[in-house]
Each structure stands twice: as structure tokens, then as C-alpha cells.
Deep mutational scan, measured.
Amino acid sequence: QVNIAPGSLDKALNQYAAHSGFTLSVDASLTRGKQSNGLHGDYDVESGLQQLLDGSGLQVKPLGNNSWTLEP
């Protein structure tokens, strides 16, 4: 069960990665100043990332080996 409060997208993504045990490689300029609506409930990694990114204009991309990145 994930419980991440709304706020900074950077912070939300870092909390989610730490909670879910995956690696997220992101260029900080992509997420700077963006906000997230947070995340509450049970999600697989990709669904949770998509939910956190909702409205940010960013997309999640798998890199393999439980690693992910973001792209515009």
C-alpha cells in the first residue's frame, strides 16, 4: 500500500522509488517545479508512476532490470 502526499513531483517520485524498490533515472530539469497529486493505494510500478506523472506532460519508459526513466 502506497501513501504519498501531494506536492513536489521530485519528492513524490523519490518516495515511490524507495517504497517500491525500483531505480528511477531522471534528468532533474524534467521534473523541476512540477507538482504531483500524490498516490494512495496498491499499484504496480508502471501504473503508480503514470499516476504520479498525471498532468506533468512526462511519460514513463522502462529501461529493464527494474529501472525506469522519464521523457517528455
Rank of each mutant, 00 (worst) to 15 (best):
K34A: 04
L52H: 01
K34D: 06
L53Q: 01
D44W: 03
H40M: 12
E71Q: 10
S8V: 04
E71I: 14
Q1F: 15
T69Y: 11
L63P: 01
Q59Y: 10
Q51C: 12
G41E: 02
N65S: 10
N65M: 09
N14D: 11
N66L: 05
S36T: 15
L49Q: 01
V2M: 08
S8F: 09
H19C: 13
L58Q: 00
E71G: 06
F22W: 02
Q1V: 13
N65R: 07
N14C: 15
S25T: 13
L24T: 02
P62W: 14
A28K: 11
L24F: 10
L70V: 14
L24V: 07
G41F: 04
L30R: 00
S20R: 14
Q1P: 13
V45S: 04
N14F: 14
G7E: 04
T69P: 02
D27P: 09
S47V: 09
G21N: 09
R32H: 15
D54M: 15
V2P: 06
T69F: 09
V2H: 06
Q51I: 14
G41T: 02
G7T: 09
Y16K: 00
N65H: 10
I4A: 02
A17W: 03
E46I: 14
R32S: 14
S8G: 06
A5V: 07
L53H: 00
L39W: 02
L53A: 06
W68C: 05
H40C: 14
D54L: 15
Y43R: 01
T31V: 13
D44K: 05
L70C: 09
V2R: 01
Q35M: 14
K11V: 13
T31I: 14
Q50P: 00
K61T: 07
P6N: 02
L49V: 01
T23S: 09
T23M: 09
V60M: 11
R32G: 12
V60H: 09
Q15W: 09
G57W: 04
P62E: 08
L9H: 02
D27G: 04
E46P: 09
V60N: 01
V26A: 10
N37K: 14
L13T: 01
L63S: 08
S20C: 15
G64Q: 04
L9T: 01
G33D: 12
Q50C: 12
F22S: 03
Y43G: 03
